[in-house]
Design a protein around this nucleic acid. Structure first.
Lengths: 366, 366
DNA sequence: CTGAAAGCGCTAACAC
DNA sequence: GTGTTAGCGCTTTCAG
């Protein structure tokens, strides 16, 4: 390449890499040769030497879920605008898959990571990267034992609280919730009593449900806290079971978009009329919630904004680190006697809100 | 690193990289040292030397769209099973964005690319990579001028044909179609006459619509071919306009999932009853199509399978090339007098099918 | 402004 | 088995 252009590799590099000073004449020669040879830079070599890949890693549990699809879309937009690329991985909430993805991305030298951790096991997977000083942003789920890491989340507990409050105000007393975290009911009940919060969105929403009941002086009934995995068919079965088992239930709060569609299907199949016999609140304001009859009352969460905020935060951290790579690794940090200069972690909470529509109504007489 | 373990860099490399032969003793020493130092391999250096990154590029127009979200999910699954990673980019159907993404991925040395090209302009963007011998698979949209590239697509034309046939059999004569490719109507009409096909799915579906009408001896009416971009609100407006303008329309065929939701919204707002006044067929069998009343008749396309097939094909090509890197680049090919050995491109067509439900019925009397 | 040379962290070939 | 050496393709000193 440099040979064809009749200059040294150094000059060629300066032109192609856009650094240093080059005369117009040699610039033209190089560009022409590059054109002719169909030259393309080797990003690997460049990254190897510069120590940055202009690539971030994104790890979610399921891009197929519309919630994450929106968030990833937002991240992609933000990242592209900054001239970065995005490595994407799915975990299906499997700890091992998550660990492997994280490790591979780390070895591929991503400049930062946005992750929706699968659970508390994630802390162990993230620890080495955190200690290494890699910028990380937690998406949608905080990790209490990783307080030094930035996070962008939704005010899940209070969203759930206002949803359930709405039902209570309408006169409902037998309010069921369908949740992926139902098995955590005993633990979460005490969390509520202590006024605390919970890590996973599903748990946080359940806490909100419990808090609302408690404030209204309604005893939480474990049998009305029904469990379902994130799977429409399973949710449908779970809700059908509930309605058969506890016909006195007059309202259902769904804590996730797929649980919502399962619940709506179940109610339709059960023959109960909504909202006359049964009120429903869904989670996540998807397009179809205004197409069904009655239109669904839902908690809308800013999914796209969640993604852009996370990406924005991450890119900012990467930029910070680039201009001041003090906090390289724990090893170096401990070695140098400087002030640790550990950046305060940022905790960004975006607000969802209740959209009242036609699927919620006053408690039926009788 | 090698120093701490008390061995040479070569031995350390053999252990960490998992190649060559090493004694148990030194293996243990190296692993221990690696553990202690928190060593992580540098994938960039490895890739630089081995000439493969174990990473593929995926380019779609919008991961936020449930169609692509499913396909990308499938690709992620397939790719992960093979131990690869995935760089993902969105183009919003913008040629420049597509070109930039392609270029960046190419420079980052991806081992292959899956792309849903935005249009015929994509050929120029892909040409250099194709000539370089990079494995590529076209997803969902063929490119006639790039016949040497593998493609995985849906039988869009015949899906559309059977949808419209269904309407015709029910007695409908004034059948509208809502399409992103409506402006291509004149050109596509001649394509149909010639029995040809079209590149973009939207166009292919429109061709199917025209073919069905033609076979039934119904004249296609340009005014019933309504245009809408992929945007729910726009689709809703377009369909409302159609219903006002041409009240004799008794059936609507939607050629995409977002157009479908817009059309359903419009019909609901118009006050026309479905299927009594108006039959509708949607595209893409999403969850909600069974939750609305009447349940929607739709064309189901195998979105997940489309993604897995594409990924599968690509990984296979990458494997082929790895074992026989003959066709490195055009330059070398031309130089060597060997048989070109150009692999025949594979064209995989997955079949969608019509799911008849309650939104289609016989033509109303009157 | 330009060239020569060193080296990023690794693997491949070859000796020992 | 193991160590030595020579690069992968680029950027970065450092002289000229």
């Amino acid at each position: 390449m440099a040979g064809v252009a009749g200059v040294s590799t150094a000059t060629a590099g300066r032109v192609l890499g856009g650094y240093g000073k080059v005369s117009e004449t040699s610039r033209r020669k190089v560009e022409e040769a590059a054109q002719r040879l169909g030259y393309r830079a080797n990003g690997l070599a460049r990254s190897l030497i510069q120590g940055s890949t202009e690539t971030i890693g994104v790890i979610v549990t399921d891009v197929g879920n519309s919630f994450f699809a929106s968030a990833v879309r937002a991240i992609a937009d933000e990242v592209r605008a900054a001239g970065y690329e995005m490595l994407l991985a799915n975990t299906d909430a499997d700890p091992q898959t998550e660990q492997r993805a994280l490790r591979m991305m780390w070895e591929k030298r991503v400049d930062g990571v946005i992750i929706a951790p699968q659970g508390s096991g994630s802390v162990g997977h993230l620890r080495p990267l955190v200690d290494d000083g890699l910028p990380i942003v937690l998406l949608d789920r905080p990790l209490a034992t990783l307080p030094e890491v930035d996070q962008v989340i939704i005010n899940n507990t209070s969203c759930a609280r206002s949803a359930v409050n709405h039902l209570i105000e309408l006169g409902h007393r037998h309010i069921a919730v369908i949740s992926e975290a139902a098995h955590d009911f005993p633990r979460l009940r005490s969390v509520t009593l202590a006024g605390g919060d919970a890590e996973r969105p599903s748990a946080a929403r359940l806490v909100g449900y419990l808090a609302a009941l408690r404030r209204a002086g309604i005893d939480a009934d474990e049998d009305l806290v029904v469990h379902s995995p994130y799977n429409r068919a399973a949710a449908e079965r779970a809700v059908l079971g509930l309605l058969r088992r506890r016909p006195e239930v007059t309202a259902i709060f769904c804590t996730d978009n797929v649980l919502t569609s399962g619940a709506v299907a179940a109610i339709q199949r059960s023959g109960r009329r909504c909202p006359d016999d049964l009120s429903v609140i869904g989670f996540d304001d998807q397009d179809w919630t205004t197409l069904v009859r009655p239109q669904l009352t839902v908690v809308r969460q800013p999914r796209y904004e969640l993604g852009s905020a996370a990406a924005h935060r991450l890119l900012q951290r990467i930029e910070e680190r680039r201009s001041a790579p003090n906090n390289r690794s724990r090893a170096e940090n401990t070695a140098s006697g400087d002030a640790p200069k550990i950046q305060e972690a940022q905790r960004l909470v975006l607000r969802g809100r209740l959209i009242k529509r036609a699927s919620t109504g006053p408690i039926p007489p009788g």
